[in-house]
């Protein structure tokens, strides 16, 4: 526990100093995009990593919240705060409805239903032109100025996103080690056993679905503030797939996996689009490669390597028994 706390502190310090170090507005903005993507990926991780519920429609929550907040604040005359609250509440309610439907099935059926629901939302955004502006999207939205801080400034926005990111990650960290989070992980591994132990598996999954939808909505809010514009693209299957890729590439079921995955995908996307126009193809290829060659994701893969490296060094130095690498994990790392 203690060394990991140290890591978190160091990581936090780097994130706080980042805008000072890089300076360039372009890269600060890129970092903001990563933070937003990381919140969305972390929220999906609640379902995929802890619940074993692979959703291919998670863009629905970010997208709906983004549409809601832009529409409410820029077109329906609500204030920023009211718009934001209503957007998150409305999206969370929608997550409840979608969860009720998708959890009628499990496994591949769940995946297909989430995908279909997500695509229906995309279709609404694309076709219901009078409300959503269709392919042109909804604009006319500007960043708010809470407490006189102008979020139009890249660094200010970065810190704003960082605070929300910190809150989200802390909440998900608590969730993952909480009785409820541990129950969810139990339903992932042994659903039948869990109901025999007195857990209502469907309620646990449904509440987790709603919780994931809530944090997805928060990410969508930031997305809307960042882009000051929303178009059907945010609801597209590609966005859902990118988000899922972040979770899987980084490491589903770990706290930092989706964050690393988000950084990777966002950077890759920006770098790639600067040189080639074939982002979709690259995305597809990365998808196939990750699934084939690194199904556990980067964070578990790398930390396994790191552990092995440390253990072999320790073995070499202290010359203890060669079984050191196979020592059982201690209580503190229970849910790693």
């Amino acid at each position: 526990m203690k060394p990991s706390l140290l890591w978190v502190a160091a990581f936090g310090a780097v994130l706080i100093l980042l805008p000072q170090v890089i300076g360039s507005a372009y890269y600060v903005n890129l970092c903001s995009q990563i933070l937003i993507a990381a919140i969305l990926a972390s929220s999906l991780n609640i379902l995929v990593g802890f619940g074993g519920l692979t959703s291919l429609g998670h863009a629905a929550y970010a997208g709906t919240a983004a549409y809601f907040t832009v529409y409410l604040s820029a077109h329906a005359g609500f204030g920023y705060l009211a718009g934001a609250v209503m957007a998150v509440a409305g999206t969370t309610a929608m997550a409840l409805l979608f969860g009720l439907l998708a959890l009628r099935a499990s496994g591949l059926g769940f995946l297909m239903i989430t995908l279909a629901l997500g695509q229906i939302l995309w279709g609404i955004a694309y076709r219901w032109v009078s409300l959503t502006g269709g392919d042109n999207g909804l604009g006319g939205f500007t960043r708010p100025q809470p407490f006189g801080i102008d979020l139009a400034d890249p660094a200010a926005f970065y810190y704003f996103a960082l605070v929300v990111f910190g809150l989200a990650l802390f909440a998900i960290h608590r969730f993952m080690h909480s009785p409820f989070g541990q129950s969810l992980q139990g339903t992932r591994d042994q659903p039948r056993r869990m109901s025999a132990l007195g857990y209502n598996v469907r309620s646990i999954q449904l509440l987790s679905f709603v919780y994931a939808g809530f944090w997805g909505a928060v990410a969508g809010l930031l997305y809307a503030y960042y882009h000051q514009f929303v178009s059907p693209h945010v609801l597209h299957l590609t966005t859902s797939a990118e988000t899922l890729l972040m979770v899987i590439a980084g490491g589903a079921g770990t706290l930092f996996g989706p964050v690393v995955g988000a950084a990777l995908v966002v950077i890759l996307k920006n770098v790639a689009s600067a040189y080639i126009a074939r982002w979709m193809m690259l995305l597809g290829a990365v998808f196939v490669a990750i699934v084939l060659f690194m199904p556990d994701g980067l964070v578990p893969g790398v930390s396994r390597l790191f552990r092995r490296f440390r253990n072999t060094r320790r073995t070499a130095m202290k010359n203890t028994e060669p079984d050191a690498a196979a020592l059982p994990p201690t209580l503190g790392k229970r849910s790693a």
């Binding site: 608590r174 969730f175 080690h177 909480s178 009785p179 409820f180 857990y199 509440l207 503190g332």
Partner: peptide
């Protein structure tokens, strides 16, 4: 009842 708590530390 505590099984529903999403914030406490089970450990």
């Amino acid at each position: 009842k505590r099984r529903w708590n999403p914030f406490a530390d089970l450990g």
